[in-house]
Design a protein around this nucleic acid. Structure first.
Lengths: 197, 197
DNA sequence: TGTACATCAGTGAACGCGCGTTCACTGATGTAC
DNA sequence: TGTACATCAGTGAACGCGCGTTCACTGATGTAC
């Protein structure tokens, strides 16, 4: 039964956006297509999000929130060892990127997002805090900035290069998931020498 | 004196593209705007590049070529010490990204490029080879894959996070160039512990 | 319990815009004889 | 040295398209009395 009011058009629009981004990437995103997929008129999205940047910012915010949840979950399940916790956090960061390619790429496209939106600013800060917390545990206090920056850069760079197929030469045709597992673990183990000291 | 034939319209179009990308980013790029800036008719670019992907791919290729030149130049000027050579190469990678923001971002946007173009494929492979060569010198032979991946991920991730303003929280308002210098050096020094072993 | 009214979500037609592409053309250049 | 012709670079008008935005509207919901 179609009601005049959709009920949860907001959520439907965000779902539609996810679909478009997954299929076409961010270049192919438009409000009209989004409305079309959500089965509503093309002018409806403005009611909920203002413009495309608003909608994408909300979507990115929810991405950061899910990423935080994944990292936190992985860390708390990793046992008491501080290094294992950091490793689990890094893995979760990379896994999130691979499992949510479109969202991850959008989350770091500053030109498409409005960082002024409180929910987005808060969610991205929370994600960063997860990394900082995990690294701080290694030191029994605050981690030095260079170590934090290195750890973040390493996991972020690895995920980015994988997603943009820049590392296909190293992957040598191996399954992407498997390569990420193996090389990611090796990379984190390698990184340990830098962070433990 | 305007001649009917431009003389070097191809180069003029690439220059125009550089301007657009610098000012508006890749989202704002269009063939028509590019032709407009080059002072030619909107149908002319097709003659030289086919379509937008063709033009952008050539531009990205020249970006990789300049990046390779910078890395190689830095390495050969770094003296005989293998670690100093690697450090100089990493610095050059980061410096190129900051000084050529638009080009760098385009160079790693797989969806906008045609990797099948020989010049692009060759230039990006050459850039990767620079890193591999620099790292191999540390080992007196081929560097293990995880170490190569870590070094690449670290410099690439750092540059990316900087450019997308994701690391603004760590920068704390400090001048971007200066932050890149200091934090970049600290990061590379930190990385040394992982790679030397 | 019923009525009036304000508010809000969503509609659909209309607008102007910049885009990529096509196409018949024109002017310049190079080559054959 | 001159002429004819092929080739190539660039022109400009025309096309159809999807887009974001605007606007007067309509239907549903909630609240005041």
């Amino acid at each position: 039964m179609h009601t005049y009011h959709h009920g949860d058009l907001r959520a439907a629009l965000l779902d539609a956006a996810a679909g478009i981004l997954q299929e076409k990437g961010i270049e192919g995103f438009s409000l009209r297509e989004c409305a079309r997929r959500a089965g509503t008129s093309h002018a409806a999205p403005a009611h909920h999000f203002g413009d495309a940047q608003g909608l994408l910012s909300e979507f990115a915010a929810s991405g950061f929130e899910r990423m935080v949840a994944m990292m936190r979950g992985a860390r708390t399940q990793a046992g008491p060892d501080a290094w294992e916790q950091l490793r689990a956090t890094g893995r979760a960061y990379i896994d999130f990127a691979l499992e949510n390619r479109a969202a991850f790429q959008l989350m770091f496209r500053a030109d498409r997002l409005d960082q002024g939106r409180p929910r987005l600013a808060q969610a991205s800060a929370a994600a960063f805090d997860e990394l900082r917390t995990a690294l701080a545990a290694l030191h029994g206090g605050r981690a030095p900035a260079p170590q934090l920056m290195l750890a973040w850069s390493a996991v972020h760079g690895f995920a980015t290069l994988l997603l943009e197929h820049a590392a296909d030469g190293m992957r040598q045709g191996q399954d992407m998931q498997a390569f990420s597992r193996e090389m990611g673990d090796a990379l984190l183990a390698q990184l340990k020498h830098s962070l433990a000291g």
